[in-house]
Measured scan of single mutants.
Amino acid sequence: MAAGGDHGSPDSYRSPLASRYASPEMCFVFSDRYKFRTWRQLWLWLAEAEQTLGLPITDEQIQEMKSNLENIDFKMAAEEEKRLRHDVMAHVHTFGHCCPKAAGIIHLGATSCYVGDNTDLIILRNALDLLLPKLARVISRLADFAKERASLPTLGFTHFQPAQLTTVGKRCCLWIQDLCMDLQNLKRVRDDLRFRGVKGTTGTQASFLQLFEGDDHKVEQLDKMVTEKAGFKRAFIITGQTYTRKVDIEVLSVLASLGASVHKICTDIRLLANLKEMEEPFEKQQIGSSAMPYKRNPMRSERCCSLARHLMTLVMDPLQTASVQWFERTLDDSANRRICLAEAFLTADTILNTLQNISEGLVVYPKVIERRIRQELPFMATENIIMAMVKAGGSRQDCHEKIRVLSQQAASVVKQEGGDNDLIERIQVDAYFSPIHSQLDHLLDPSSFTGRASQQVQRFLEEEVYPLLKPYESVMKVKAELCL
């Protein structure tokens, strides 16, 4: 049975990233139509530049190519590739079939990587351009969430054990800070992308030097003109047959890092959902379990974690691919890159769409948070109580021993009897502590235990987050809708 299948058929496997999760716009960027249309555009740009620099290419040939950029006979191309065992030459023939007058000058002087690699770089750039505003929107939604809850005390956790208090907004800023680093890295790697350009079979530009009869300047002009037509500021000066596969490492490393950030955020949300302090959106008709109707599973956060793990592992592909590119190139890269580049971007696209949807509907339960604080705060307040007693004339050592005994009794009630923490009640009825009984409410005010959390939130948002989001103001209103 021949390899390949009808990918629109229910009898043929289709990647869930495309069929179930990723956005239509990201799927289109990695589609065959987008790819092969870009090949034709690159052939047109090459012909236009070659004509401008004096090669015998007519206006009629150029116009014929322009008129057929979208006229792609995919069936013919597939048949040609089956016959020739070469995808680029299959599309040269297919393009030439609908451009008979231009057929002889299509791909003039070029090698397969002229269309293959340059198209990949265009796709990487455009895919990054799709991700950047999506990530900015996630940051914006979380920034709104953090600002609104900047002063809401909550129990902090280290080692997932109760620690000092923080605020809900401050905790959210930990998430935002990681995503801001990801946004900066995505922008950097996007701006650092260079075009492969017009380089020939081993990167020496020998074929173009021959076409222009040894004119170095025209060869350099050709490279520059096509690079500018493709919208790049610069091209690699040095290439082998391909652009260095280190570029793929750079791009997928940034995406993998984004995956790590999203995994951490969504894990926190899942843990908070278990504590009943916070939940992701839950639709009115949504079913959490087929057997347990009360369940409210954090399905979206779980999906993000599941896909983020996949995204983090994909960076190993370009690392290994770059390491086995012998001399000017081997074909070890080809099949692998067809999979890992598309999957990385479709996965990143999915987790950003999902995280935006989550961040637009996060639900906080202040009463649950308050109750958990009441359970733990008495123990945390013991040092403040000791200091207040010393100020009232008591002995630190005597007070410490009193607190120690009462704390152990209260802990026994919590752990052995399943009761509430009654340390404060014990202190309130103990005559030894009568000098500070009137101060206990103040000493137990949760806001006095959150330090500068709310001020940190305000400063972080104003100095770091809002300036970073400013270039994306025009796209901030787009909502994230999930079908599944």
Rank of each mutant, 00 (worst) to 15 (best):
I369C: 11
S407T: 09
K218D: 01
T167Y: 00
D333R: 00
S395I: 03
S434F: 15
A410F: 04
R296Y: 03
L44Y: 09
I386Y: 05
Q456K: 06
M316A: 07
A348I: 12
T38R: 03
K479R: 14
F212E: 04
M76G: 11
K233C: 06
R371W: 00
K470W: 14
K134G: 14
R171L: 05
I403N: 04
W43N: 05
C304S: 06
H310Q: 01
I237R: 11
I62R: 02
D6N: 10
T267N: 07
P100D: 06
V115S: 07
G394N: 13
K276R: 09
D59G: 05
Q320A: 06
E250S: 08
R85D: 00
A411N: 13
G54E: 11
H159Y: 00
H310M: 13
F379L: 06
L377D: 02
K402M: 11
I339K: 10
I238V: 10
D349A: 12
P366A: 06
M380D: 00
R329M: 00
L252I: 10
E343N: 10
R329T: 00
F195K: 02
E50G: 07
D191E: 13
A103M: 11
F236V: 09
P471R: 14
Q184S: 11
E220N: 14
S407R: 00
T158Q: 02
R452H: 11
L209S: 12
M380K: 08
N71A: 06
T119D: 03
L222G: 01
A453T: 13
L179M: 08
P293N: 01
V247E: 02
L461Y: 07
T58P: 06
I106W: 02
L183C: 10
G451W: 05
I287V: 06
L135S: 10
D117A: 01
R396V: 09
I386V: 12
M278V: 09
I351R: 01
D129A: 09
F30V: 12
K101I: 14
R372V: 02
G419S: 10
K295Q: 02
S434G: 13
L272C: 06
R83S: 08
A2W: 12
V262N: 08
M76Y: 07
Q205L: 06
V254H: 10
K199Q: 07
Y13K: 08
V189T: 15
M387N: 08
S31V: 11
V115G: 05
F208M: 12
C180V: 15
L352D: 05
P162L: 12
R452N: 08
A344F: 05
T111I: 00
V219A: 05
L69M: 13
I369R: 05
R303H: 01
S447L: 14
E328D: 10
E213M: 05
V315W: 08
R245D: 05
E148W: 04
V315L: 11
K224D: 15
S359G: 09
Q408S: 08
G418T: 04
Q286K: 01
D430W: 06
L17W: 14
K229N: 04
L132H: 14
L211H: 11
V368K: 06
Y466P: 12
C173Y: 02
L53C: 09
K284R: 10
K402D: 15
T204R: 00
T204N: 11
F282V: 04
D223Q: 14
E81N: 01
P281S: 07
N185M: 13
M89L: 07
H7D: 08
L346M: 13
D333S: 00
D398V: 13
M380I: 08
F236W: 13
S301D: 08
V247R: 02
S395N: 09
E473D: 14
M26F: 10
K218I: 06
E280Q: 06
R141N: 14
N118Y: 05
L469I: 14
R338Q: 05
D248M: 01
L84S: 06
A2E: 13
Q210R: 11
V88E: 05
T158Y: 00
K284L: 07
G418L: 02
D420I: 10
H310S: 08
H107W: 00
A388K: 03
K233V: 13
D11H: 15
K35P: 03
T94H: 08
D73A: 13
P298Q: 07
F327D: 00
Y243F: 14
G419F: 03
P467V: 13
F460G: 04
A103D: 13
I427S: 04
T313M: 10
F212I: 15
T158P: 03
C304Q: 05
P435H: 11
G240W: 03
S434I: 08
S474N: 12
Q184N: 13
H263T: 11
E401R: 14
C305L: 03
A136T: 14
N126R: 05
P56N: 07
K66W: 09
S140E: 15
